[in-house]
Design a binder for these strands. Structure first.
Lengths: 334, 334
DNA sequence: CTCCACCATTGGAGCGCTCTATTGGTTGGA
DNA sequence: TCCAACCAATAGAGCGCTCCAATGGTGGAG
């Protein structure tokens, strides 16, 4: 299907190609009369400027590449909405690609993103090796979301996981809990900060931390709880759990119920991420909320600052999480 | 950040630009020696072909545009994975855009997709008016997923909602249920077929259909259930519910529990879509599964057939859903 | 020894656009 | 009346690439 070009519009409107270009750039130096003629001709032909040709000719890209490690995780969906609205406002287009949580697939996806010669790329919690990220950063401005980095060439946007985990512990302590366990996120990029925050908060209250190995999935949460309860005397069981993230919390809750514990009467559970499922009445999970939209917007902002050459020092955005109290936490059974 | 061009590579390898082009097209008419030299030079410079320039010069696009109506819905995430793998295999790149369930935003997103002059576009359950879709179809091959159309210029990929809803009813009838209500999906593009399937199946078993107005969200499910129970005598309450989709089912389940009904002992619930949440042990929702990956693959296939000019008649793929029985259905109380 | 077929390689035009420099047509001040 | 200043409009080069037609170099057949 051959689509009309700028030339076609120019001929039909009886003007030069350059004038059409000016009209589509909203240049003020075009008479109202001509502008109208051009727009009419474009409308009649169904003309639409060709982004790629424009990018080539102007030597500037309006494309922002976005690599999502895992589309199934609704957390990213909301970050993307933030990216999307910020990008659109600034006149940029998003090109999205997904890596399905596999380093090799992510690499391929990043490669394909870079082949667009984008103005910048956003990497959402990538599992890529640091070397690959550095390589990308040499090609265009790069910002990391939900993953930290020491590279001075990349910007980062993260929530303050230390503060978030602390928030969860403070809440439980305030309710009267003292035996509070943490289900660790393992290799996830955000796990270390949450673990640290948990430890700090526990020690600040003179309590003994208990970190249980796990992962950010519901099956891992399930397994870890079974292991924890199976290897501990009943009187020693924790009265509250700080899960690595919401999915982990869901798994943990299933396991707890299987073991005959009621939530929150017998044991409280706090998640992390405030995914949309947590808000479902049936689930009603107390959890830590990250300002996802805001994170998306900041990521785009950081990118654009680099694109415009306004900044060369790395930006390190650390956002404040907040606690959303719902139905899975209550004071411990006397 | 200026990136190296084909010219740079050519100079460094001591060959012509055209030869470099041939190497990157994997042309067989290049000597091993030169090929190696070119690849080495490219590697050293960190050269990567410019997709946009290539598209312009070759007058063929390797871009497939994807419009997702709602990224938060995990259903689409899996369709996209199907799209992604099929596209990658065929050497195409995905450009994703999201419309956040608003017609005007969707229109803007579609517009921006089309400005890439893609080889084709995939519209995932769009809320766009038919006229807009037809317009898009005039510009490039277009396929609709989870939405049907009479337009001969667009292909469609849908699950057989009639069969899916029937599956749900059959299952409940087999368990012994007779008063089975349906929570309707309202204006959702997939609602009509499911409603029809429900009606047909009920009538086939000599049962009276009861369609309750609702939407494909959990809050709507909640409200509808409260209304249904509030306006009916207890003895008349249904013993089973066929929800419009999983989210609707989640909301319905919250409301049922609030009304003091146990699931599945007092009332059974069946969802639709088999979203990843349905599989969470804590939820364990019996639901209808659509072959999402397959749908993604078929969509890309349909597009490529049109691109290659192999077919001009509209393709109408109707896929068979299957029932996934979990914990929210059981025989009715005596 | 010539001729032609065949091969790897190359120059150059052109894809749809932007951008710089330039044109020609008004104005208005001196 | 003349010229600078200004304006809308345009010609033409060039962005990074592909592709076609053409190049020169080789080898085998006649």
């Amino acid at each position: 299907m051959p689509r009309p070009t700028m030339e076609d519009v120019a001929v039909r409107a009886g003007v030069s190609r350059a004038l059409v270009s000016l009209v589509f750039k909203d240049s003020p130096k075009v008479s109202e009369q001509r502008r109208a003629a051009v727009l009419a001709a474009a409308e009649e032909l169904g003309y639409q400027p060709h982004v790629m040709a424009r990018a080539l000719a102007s030597r500037t890209s309006t494309v922002l590449g976005v690599l999502v490690s895992d589309l199934r995780n609704a957390f990213f969906a909301e970050v993307i909405e933030g990216l999307d609205s910020a990008a659109r406002e600034a006149g940029f287009e998003l090109v999205l690609n997904t890596g399905s949580r596999s380093p090799s697939r992510e690499k391929a996806a990043l490669h394909s993103l870079l082949s667009f010669h984008p103005a910048g790329v956003v990497l959402l919690s990538p599992v890529l090796p640091a070397a690959t990220i550095e390589q990308a950063a040499r090609k265009c401005p790069t910002v990391l979301v939900s993953r930290s980095s020491r590279l001075s060439t990349v910007d980062t946007v993260n929530d303050d996981g230390v503060a978030g985990a602390r928030l969860a512990v403070e809440h439980l302590v305030a309710l009267g809990h003292r035996r509070i366990a943490h289900l660790d996120g393992g290799s996830a990029t955000t796990a270390a900060a949450r673990r640290r925050g948990y430890r700090q908060a526990m020690q600040a209250h003179g309590l003994t931390p208990l970190v249980v190995a796990s992962e950010h999935t519901d099956t891992a949460g399930e397994k870890s709880v079974h292991q924890l309860l199976g290897s501990t005397r009943r009187e020693q069981w924790p009265t509250a759990l700080v899960a690595g993230n919401d999915f982990n919390a869901f798994g943990a809750m299933s396991a707890l119920e299987e073991e005959g514990l009621r939530i929150p009467e017998d044991i409280s559970v706090v998640g992390y991420d405030n995914t949309s499922l947590a808000a479902l009445k049936r689930v009603s999970l107390t959890t830590v909320d990250q300002p996802r939209m805001e994170m998306g917007r900041l990521a785009v902002e950081a990118l654009l600052e680099r694109v415009r050459g306004e900044r060369s020092a790395p930006a390190r955005h650390l956002l404040h999480p907040s606690l959303v109290v719902r139905g899975t936490t209550s004071p411990p059974a006397s």
